[in-house]
Simulated assay, not measured.
Amino acid sequence: MEHLLGLLRIHIHRGVNLAVRDMNSSDPYVVVRLGKQKLKTRVVKKNLNPEWNEDLTLSVADSNLPIKLTVYDKDTFTLDDKMGDAEFDIRPFLEAMKMQLGNLPSGTIITRVKPSRDNCLAEESCIMWTDGKVVQDMVLRLRNVECGEVEIQLQWIDVPGSRGLHM
C-alpha cells in the first residue's frame, strides 16, 4: 500500500425524494465504489427519504479516479433494483486539503464547486473549514432515474506512514 494517499470518510447523510421501486415505496441502500473497493450502507425499509447517517471509509491511492455512488432498492426474492447513480470528483476537496490551512474560524468556506454538466451536483457544494478539519458537503443528483438526491459529506483521514497529500 505504498501508494496510499490516505483515507476518505464519506458520511452518507440521507436520500431525498428517491424513486419508487416497490409498489408505493422502496427499501433503499447506498453502494460506494472506488476502483476495486465497494462499501454499502444498511437498508432503510419503506422510505423514500431515508436517513442513513453512516460513515463509509475508502482508501485513496489515485485522486483522479471518480467515486461512484449507486442507490439500490433491496428486494427479497429478485435482484435489487437500481434507483440511480452519481459520480463525484474528489480533486477539488484534495486541493483544499493541500493548502494546509490552520487557525481559520470554523465555518469558513475555502472553495465552492458549482453544479455543471460534468458533475452530479444538485446545488453548489462548499468545501469548508469546520472544527479544525476540511469537509465538503455535497448534494448529488442521481442519474438514470426519474428523481432522487443523496446528501453526503467528505472528510479526509491522514494515515501515518502513507504518502499523504503533501507531494
Rank of each mutant, 00 (worst) to 15 (best):
G6I: 03
G6T: 03
L7G: 06
L8S: 01
R9N: 13
G15R: 07
L18N: 13
A19S: 05
R21M: 10
D22R: 07
M23K: 13
M23V: 11
M23G: 09
N24W: 10
N24E: 10
S25R: 08
S25W: 10
P28W: 09
Y29F: 08
Y29C: 10
L34H: 11
L34G: 00
G35E: 02
K38H: 12
L39G: 00
V44D: 02
V44S: 02
K45W: 12
L48E: 03
N49D: 11
N49P: 03
N53Q: 05
E54I: 10
E54N: 14
E54Q: 15
E54L: 04
L58A: 00
L58D: 00
S59P: 02
S59C: 04
V60Y: 01
V60I: 15
D62G: 04
I67E: 01
L69A: 02
L69N: 00
Y72D: 10
D75M: 12
D75W: 12
T78D: 14
K82R: 13
A86Q: 00
F88I: 02
F88T: 00
R91N: 13
R91E: 10
P92D: 01
E95W: 04
A96S: 15
A96C: 12
M99Q: 05
G102D: 07
L104E: 05
S106D: 06
G107F: 10
T111M: 15
V113P: 07
R117P: 08
D118Y: 12
C120G: 03
A122R: 00
M128E: 13
T130G: 14
V134P: 05
V134D: 01
D137N: 15
D137P: 09
V139T: 14
V139F: 02
L140T: 00
L140H: 01
R141Y: 00
R141K: 14
R141C: 01
R143G: 06
V145P: 09
E146F: 03
V150D: 05
I152E: 00
Q153D: 03
Q153R: 14
Q155P: 06
I157R: 14
P160V: 13
L165N: 11
H166P: 01
M167V: 15
M167H: 15
